[in-house]
Design a protein around this nucleic acid. Structure first.
Lengths: 221, 221
DNA sequence: GAACGCTTCAAACAGGCGTTCGAATGTTAG
DNA sequence: CTAACATTCGAACGCCTGTTTGAAGCGTTC
């Protein structure tokens, strides 16, 4: 047998990229999909450019390198996610009665709405899960350098709402919470949604379950 | 600049493989480490065999292919993990008063002891997190086909202990629990352990925090 | 219409990939 | 000692990788 692809993959539905978008956007969309499916090392620029209906050299022309393409890809989505989350957190903080539940909701709802977005956001959520699983230090650094402050703000707010919890315990539990969210979201929109349920409905259900679980876990005696 | 590696990596401490072990075992150990660090597509057989101090062709001689090497790698650890978990679960079931906490402990302690094992188990735990993040269907199928029954047994036991919880809610919450565990463990032993704390102590602390969090989350109103 | 900047394109580059092969070496059994 | 087998080894196979290059296409501005 001749040498196959680097890592075994199964046949997948072809990606359809809107031809009205610019070359840059088409590349970003196709890359998001393919990296989510096969990993950063597993998907090649030839696969990406072919799916985007774009010349191979366009990636290096518009993004400089594969690594930079990956960074831009994260930047595009995380900037939006961060803004939405911070806005929601500010709203909760300004309200008369901030509850643990409302803070958790401010954190999870923007992510879930991204996950059920048909514009490709669902791929990105899986990509995010992958980025956490990968211990690629460059990517982790990029994410924590540029978006770590969001997590810190949420942690601060939660710490105020749980004054009896030790710093140590809070640290552990927040880690569990992010793990639960990341993991659940990475499957979100793929297998979990029952037939006959709208995206909006499904998102609300998921958020409710998550907030309930996470709040109880954080409040554990 | 000449073409670099497929995906950017940073310099890592070289892997030391015990020369007294057999070729097969040296390959498995090196592969576990490298796949955990760089992913299945990101680490090449040349890197693996070089780290294992073994000829390149040895992989195909002993394992047939890269894909089969990956499977054997999972088999080696999961067989052990499954046996320990099932034994612990049986013990809990046979006890007079099975509690939610004791069931969770039976699930998490074997995994944590694997994670803090110096024999390479800590790499494997990260590998497991990666396997879940990757949506590589072949690997997922392999894992769920061969080890899905363990999760089912735990789920059944937990369901009995939470009779008032709806099937739906239980399903969601168990997903959150596995996510929390997977992601917490993938960092376990890497960054979390403070200086001057023994592995055994650290493992107990982690297990306590996790069981408390997960039990409260599962019991949420 | 010529000159300019931006984008696209086909082709090639050097190098890494998984896999295969035949010879060399070790190891065991008769 | 020798035959049979198991393992190791170096070298090569064809393929795929990220990146570069120089020419071609294009719309805008003088």
């Amino acid at each position: 047998m001749p040498s196959g692809p680097r890592v075994p993959t199964v046949a997948q539905a072809p990606i359809v990229i809107n031809p009205h978008f610019s070359t840059k956007e088409r590349i970003l969309s196709a890359a998001e999909d393919l990296f989510a499916k096969s990993g950063f090392a597993g998907a090649s620029l030839r696969q990406v450019t072919s799916a985007a209906n774009v010349n191979l050299a366009a990636v290096n022309y518009h993004f400089g390198s594969k690594e930079n393409l990956i960074n831009e890809l994260f930047k595009r989505r995380l900037d939006e996610l961060t803004a939405t989350r911070m806005g929601a957190l500010e709203k909760v903080r300004a309200s008369r009665q901030p509850t643990l539940e409302s803070v958790l909701e401010a954190f999870v709802l923007p992510a879930l709405s991204l996950a059920s977005d048909r514009g490709g956001g669902s791929s990105f959520v899986r990509l995010l899960a992958r980025a956490f699983a990968e211990h690629d230090q460059r990517l982790r650094r990029f994410v924590s350098d540029n978006y770590g402050h969001v997590l810190k703000e949420f942690a601060k707010t939660i710490a105020h709402l749980l004054p009896h919890l030790s710093k140590d315990a809070l640290y552990w539990r927040l880690d569990f919470v992010s793990g639960a969210l990341t993991y659940a979201m990475s499957d979100f929109g793929m297998i979990k949604k029952p037939a006959g349920v709208s995206d909006e409905q499904h998102r609300r259900t998921a958020a409710e379950h998550f907030v309930r679980f996470a709040a109880a876990g954080l409040r554990a005696p």
